[in-house]
Amino acid sequence: MLDDIDRRILRLLQADPARGVPDVAGAMGLTVAKVTRRLDRLREDRIVQGSHVIIDWAALGYAVSVSLRITLDKTVSRAFDDFLAAARQVPEVIEIQTFLGRVDVRLSLIAKDLADYQGIYREQVLTLPHIADIEALMTIATVKSDENLPL
């Protein structure tokens, strides 16, 4: 599926997503047109799905990070759909994951401090529909956070 040139392009872009096509082409000894064609194909195949900015939430004053493991009331037919639609509306929720097993959903949320978290939890999280059980895990340290693949 991927050849060595594709892997080299992806390694360079993983290391620096803001790197321009001319810079990638120069680093690889290829023409801009060839790298552009390869990137277009990687995007069409949905291997490359854009680039994003990683924000240091703590630098913006969000010192608290909490992971909420939620079990939903599965006796309600639309529990997942209703819950997910409502959870998407909470601005401090930065990630939503669904699971198979005892825990149905994990929400990652950020807050400025513990008082801010308490307000978000009481006023927004606890009002989300169809929650049967909830467990909060406060992040103490992020040991590894890396989306790069070993190409």
Results as ranks from 00 to 15, higher is better:
15 A>W: 04
4 D>Y: 03
85 A>E: 13
58 A>Q: 15
103 V>W: 12
8 R>E: 12
123 E>W: 06
86 A>C: 01
80 F>W: 08
18 A>Q: 08
18 A>C: 01
60 L>V: 01
121 Y>A: 08
136 A>D: 14
26 G>H: 07
71 T>I: 05
28 M>S: 09
11 R>I: 10
125 V>E: 02
141 A>G: 02
28 M>N: 01
92 E>R: 11
80 F>G: 03
110 I>D: 00
5 I>W: 02
79 A>T: 07
15 A>S: 14
109 L>W: 02
116 D>A: 01
134 I>Q: 07
2 L>A: 06
49 Q>D: 10
45 D>L: 11
94 I>Y: 06
85 A>H: 05
56 D>F: 05
29 G>D: 08
49 Q>C: 11
58 A>P: 00
23 D>Q: 15
112 K>P: 00
79 A>P: 00
145 S>W: 11
88 R>G: 01
50 G>L: 10
91 P>K: 11
47 I>H: 00
122 R>Q: 13
87 A>Y: 09
52 H>E: 12
64 V>T: 13
115 A>E: 15
34 K>A: 15
51 S>K: 11
12 L>I: 12
142 T>E: 14
47 I>W: 01
21 V>F: 01
60 L>C: 01
114 L>Q: 07
93 V>D: 10
26 G>A: 12
57 W>Y: 10
140 I>S: 04
141 A>C: 06
35 V>P: 00
53 V>I: 08
124 Q>Y: 03
115 A>P: 00
64 V>M: 09
113 D>N: 15
44 E>W: 03
120 I>Q: 00
115 A>Y: 10
26 G>Y: 04
107 L>W: 07
65 S>K: 14
143 V>P: 00
102 R>T: 14
42 L>C: 07
129 P>M: 10
92 E>S: 15
13 L>I: 12
23 D>E: 15
92 E>I: 02
24 V>G: 01
115 A>D: 15
23 D>C: 04
23 D>W: 06
26 G>D: 10
18 A>Y: 02
90 V>K: 02
140 I>E: 10
3 D>V: 04
48 V>D: 08
94 I>H: 13
132 A>C: 01
118 Q>C: 03
111 A>S: 09
101 G>H: 10
25 A>F: 07
107 L>P: 07
138 M>I: 10
113 D>F: 07
57 W>M: 13
11 R>G: 10
4 D>G: 06
33 A>Y: 03
68 L>V: 11
39 L>Q: 02
106 R>H: 05
43 R>K: 14
38 R>H: 03
3 D>M: 04
89 Q>V: 05
36 T>E: 10
86 A>G: 04
